[in-house]
Design a protein around this nucleic acid. Structure first.
Lengths: 246, 246
DNA sequence: GCGCTTCTGCGTAAGTTATACGCAGAACTA
DNA sequence: TAGTTCTGCGTATAACTTACGCAGAAGCGC
C-alpha cells in the first residue's frame, strides 16, 4: 500500500526517471536531487569516494546532513544516482558497422571509468535501473541490431563487452594510481621477491618478460582484449556480410 | 628502516607467504592468522560481508577486537587474506588442451565466486600479491604455456577470462540473490514500467524476448560468453595445430 | 481570508564502526 | 633470577549513518 505508484523502486530512482509527481502542499524544497548528486560527484571527484559522507555532501551544499534524507532514503541510493550521473549520457551517434560501434562504445565506457575512478568502487547492488545505465545498455544493443543475433546473444555480447571495460578500467586504475593511498611502485620487484620460480614458473616467465616494468599504453592493451572479444562475437554471426553493407 | 625484511607489503601478507620469522621472546600468541581468517570467513559466509566487523570476528573467536590488531594492521588486510583463503587453491591438475584448461579454470573461478558471494564485494585495493591469488594466475598461465603466445598476450588473455568470470558471477549473484536485502522479483516487469519503447527500442525488444523472465541456466549463459572469448583467443594462435596434439 | 493539512529543514541523539594508546602480565634469554 | 620482549585487551576517540520529532512554510477547502 505504500508504493502503489509504480515500480517498487526507491522514490529517488523514480524521480530520476521523472516519475515523481511533486506534491503541491508543503513548502518548496530548497534542494534538488540533481544538485545533491552534483555536489556528491564533486566531492567524489576531488576527494575520493572514501571522503564522501552525507555530512560532507551537505556541507558542499551549505545544508545539513539530515536534509538530504528528504531526497534520498539512504546513502546507497545517492551512490546509485551518482553512478548514473557520473557515466553521463551514452555515446551517440555511433558508427553503423557493429564492430566499430561496439569498439567506440567500449572505449567510451573505459574512458568514463578511468576519468572517475570512484565509479568502479561503488558496490553494485542490483541490475541496472537508472536512466543513463539503461541508456548505455540501449546504445550498446543498437550496435548489434543489424547483426541478426537473437536477444539472448545480444545481451550476452553486451555483458561481455561492458564487463571487459569495467575490468580493464579497474586494473588500470589500481596499477597506475590506487585511489586510496599509495601507488604500487614496482610490482615486478615485489613479485620477484615473493614467488619461487619452481612453483611459479609461468608467472616468473611473465615477470621476466618485463611487461610489468614497462608500463605500456593502456589503450593498446585495452584494444587487444577488446579485439579478442569482438573476434569471438564475429564468429557467431551468420556469414551474410550484412555488417559490411552500409 | 622499518621494513628491512623484504617486500614492503604488510606483515600479515608476508606471513601468508610463510615469511614471518616468529619472535621467540614474548608470550605465545593465543590466536593464529589462519584462525582469524577462518573465523572471518565463517562470519561472511553466514551473515554477509556487511555484518563483518572486527568485533564480530573477535566474538567468533572468543577474543576481543583489539587482539586482532596484533595479527593484522587494518581491516583491509584481513579482507585481503579472506579473499585469498576464500578462493582456495587453484584448480589443478587441468586438461592439457589450452581451451579445455581455460574453460575449466574459468568455471572454477565462477563457481568459487558464486559459492561465496562476498568475494566480489570486497573492494580490490591493488594487484594480486597473495599466494592463492597468484596461484590462480599461475594456473591460468599454465594452460597457455604451449600456445606459443608471448607473455603480454598470455596475460591479456588471462585477464580477459578472469574478468569475465568475475563479471558473470557478479551479475548472477545480483539477479538471483542480492546479498544485501531483497531479491529483485521481476526485473522484466520493472523495466517494462520504466522504459519507453520509442526511446529504448532495442532494450524493449530484449525484454519482450523473455530472456529476463525465464531465468535460464547460468552455466549455459556463462559458457556462451566464455566461448566467445576463447574463440577470440584462438584466432590469435599460430595455426600450427599444436592445440590438437594430445 | 482562516485554519488545517502537508510538507521541508534540521537539531539532537543513538547506535556502529575502526582503531590509537598504553598497561599488566606471560614467556623466553642470559 | 632479572630483564626483555612480546601478547591480550580495556579504554577512549573520532567518524559515520540515520531514527525521531519539532518548528515553521506553503498551499487547500471553505
Amino acid at each position: 500500500m505504500a508504493d502503489q505508484t509504480s515500480t517498487g523502486l526507491p522514490r529517488s530512482i523514480e524521480a530520476a526517471w521523472g516519475l515523481g509527481e511533486r506534491p503541491s502542499r508543503g513548502p518548496k524544497p530548497g534542494l534538488t536531487l540533481d544538485r545533491i548528486v552534483a555536489a556528491a560527484i564533486t566531492v567524489a571527484d576531488t576527494e575520493g569516494l572514501d571522503a564522501l559522507s552525507m555530512g560532507r555532501v551537505a556541507k558542499e551544499l551549505g545544508s545539513s546532513a539530515m536534509s538530504l534524507y528528504r531526497y534520498v532514503t539512504a546513502k546507497d541510493e545517492l551512490l546509485a544516482l551518482m553512478v548514473d550521473a557520473g557515466f553521463g549520457a551514452p555515446p551517440e551517434p555511433m558508427p553503423e558497422d557493429w564492430r566499430a560501434g561496439l569498439t567506440c562504445w567500449a572505449r567510451a565506457e573505459f574512458m568514463a571509468l578511468i576519468t572517475r575512478p570512484w565509479l568502479v568502487q561503488v558496490p553494485i547492488t542490483g541490475p541496472p535501473v537508472t536512466p543513463n545505465q539503461l541508456g548505455w545498455l540501449e546504445s550498446g544493443l543498437k550496435s548489434l541490431s543489424r547483426t541478426g543475433l537473437d536477444a539472448g546473444a545480444k545481451m550476452s555480447a553486451i555483458l561481455l563487452v561492458t564487463g571487459y571495460s569495467r575490468n580493464a578500467a579497474t586494473l588500470a586504475i589500481q596499477i597506475v594510481a590506487p585511489p586510496g593511498e599509495q601507488i604500487m611502485p614496482d610490482y615486478a620487484a615485489v613479485l620477484r621477491k615473493l614467488i619461487d620460480p619452481d612453483t611459479f614458473p609461468e608467472l616468473t616467465a611473465v615477470v621476466d618478460s618485463g611487461i610489468f616494468d614497462a608500463d605500456d599504453d593502456h589503450s593498446a592493451e585495452f584494444d587487444f582484449g577488446l579485439d579478442r572479444i569482438l573476434d569471438g562475437v564475429a564468429a557467431l554471426l551468420p556469414a551474410k556480410g550484412e555488417a559490411a553493407t552500409e
